[in-house]
Amino acid sequence: MRFLFYFIVVSLSACGQSNFTEDNNEKIVRPNIKLDDYLNNNMNDSTPSISFGHVSNGGLKHAKLMPYKGTNFSYFDEKSYLSGRAFTHHKVLNTVINGYKELEKNYPKRRFQLMECSNKHGGKMWPHRTHQNGLSVDFMIPKLKDGKPYYGLDSIGVGHYWLSFNNEGIYSKDSSISIDFEKIAHHILILKAEGKKQGLRISKVIIKVEFKDELFEGYFGQLLKNSGIYIVKSLTPTINDLHDDHYHIDFQEL
Results as ranks from 00 to 15, higher is better:
residue 157 G to M: 03
residue 66 M to S: 10
residue 227 S to E: 06
residue 205 V to C: 04
residue 106 N to W: 02
residue 166 N to Q: 07
residue 28 I to Y: 12
residue 2 R to K: 14
residue 95 T to A: 01
residue 41 N to K: 15
residue 218 G to I: 00
residue 183 K to N: 07
residue 192 K to F: 01
residue 189 L to E: 04
residue 124 K to H: 09
residue 174 D to K: 12
residue 168 E to T: 08
residue 107 Y to S: 11
residue 133 N to Q: 05
residue 108 P to L: 09
residue 184 I to C: 03
residue 203 S to Q: 07
residue 230 Y to M: 07
residue 180 D to T: 08
residue 89 H to W: 01
residue 104 E to F: 07
residue 173 K to R: 13
residue 231 I to A: 09
residue 150 Y to M: 00
residue 251 F to M: 02
residue 177 I to C: 02
residue 101 K to G: 08
residue 246 H to I: 06
residue 116 E to L: 04
residue 215 L to F: 10
residue 229 I to R: 02
residue 253 E to H: 10
residue 253 E to C: 10
residue 174 D to V: 07
residue 232 V to E: 14
residue 32 N to H: 13
residue 40 N to V: 05
residue 193 A to N: 15
residue 76 F to G: 12
residue 148 K to A: 12
residue 186 H to D: 12
residue 203 S to I: 00
residue 197 K to A: 13
residue 12 L to R: 12
residue 201 R to H: 06
residue 29 V to F: 13
residue 1 M to F: 07
residue 161 Y to F: 15
residue 214 E to Y: 05
residue 227 S to P: 06
residue 134 G to Y: 01
residue 192 K to E: 15
residue 181 F to A: 10
residue 194 E to M: 10
residue 113 Q to I: 15
residue 230 Y to V: 09
residue 200 L to I: 05
residue 117 C to H: 05
residue 205 V to P: 08
residue 158 V to N: 15
residue 93 L to G: 00
residue 6 Y to H: 10
residue 72 N to W: 04
residue 244 D to R: 12
residue 193 A to Y: 02
residue 219 Y to L: 10
residue 130 T to L: 03
residue 168 E to R: 12
residue 211 F to M: 02
residue 165 F to C: 12
residue 19 N to E: 13
residue 152 G to N: 08
residue 22 E to I: 15
residue 227 S to L: 05
residue 203 S to L: 00
residue 156 I to A: 04
residue 134 G to V: 02
residue 182 E to A: 07
residue 244 D to Q: 08
residue 1 M to N: 13
residue 137 V to H: 03
residue 178 S to K: 14
residue 151 Y to E: 02
residue 156 I to V: 11
residue 47 T to N: 11
residue 65 L to C: 05
residue 236 T to F: 06
residue 132 Q to W: 08
residue 177 I to A: 06
residue 51 S to L: 01
residue 171 Y to T: 01
residue 48 P to F: 11
residue 226 N to T: 12
residue 251 F to T: 01
residue 1 M to I: 11
residue 66 M to P: 00
residue 55 V to Y: 09
residue 158 V to E: 11
residue 149 P to L: 00
residue 201 R to N: 14
residue 98 N to Y: 06
residue 30 R to L: 15
residue 23 D to Q: 15
residue 236 T to E: 10
residue 158 V to R: 08
residue 129 R to A: 11
residue 58 G to S: 09
residue 241 D to K: 14
residue 8 I to Y: 12
residue 92 V to Y: 00
residue 128 H to S: 13
residue 2 R to E: 12
residue 40 N to G: 06
residue 15 C to Q: 14
residue 20 F to P: 00
residue 103 L to P: 03
residue 87 F to A: 04
residue 14 A to Y: 08
residue 7 F to H: 09
residue 252 Q to H: 06
residue 159 G to S: 04
residue 97 I to G: 01
residue 119 N to Y: 09
residue 73 F to P: 01
residue 152 G to H: 13
residue 239 I to V: 14
residue 81 Y to V: 02
residue 87 F to Y: 14
residue 167 N to Q: 14
residue 72 N to V: 02
residue 246 H to A: 10
residue 58 G to W: 01
residue 138 D to E: 05
residue 218 G to R: 11
residue 124 K to Q: 11
residue 16 G to I: 05
residue 119 N to V: 03
residue 127 P to H: 13
residue 243 H to C: 10
residue 57 N to H: 11
residue 96 V to H: 08
residue 223 L to S: 13
residue 60 L to Q: 05
residue 62 H to Q: 03
residue 235 L to I: 03
residue 248 H to S: 03
residue 115 M to H: 13
residue 124 K to I: 06
residue 67 P to K: 11
residue 63 A to S: 15
residue 182 E to G: 02
residue 227 S to F: 10
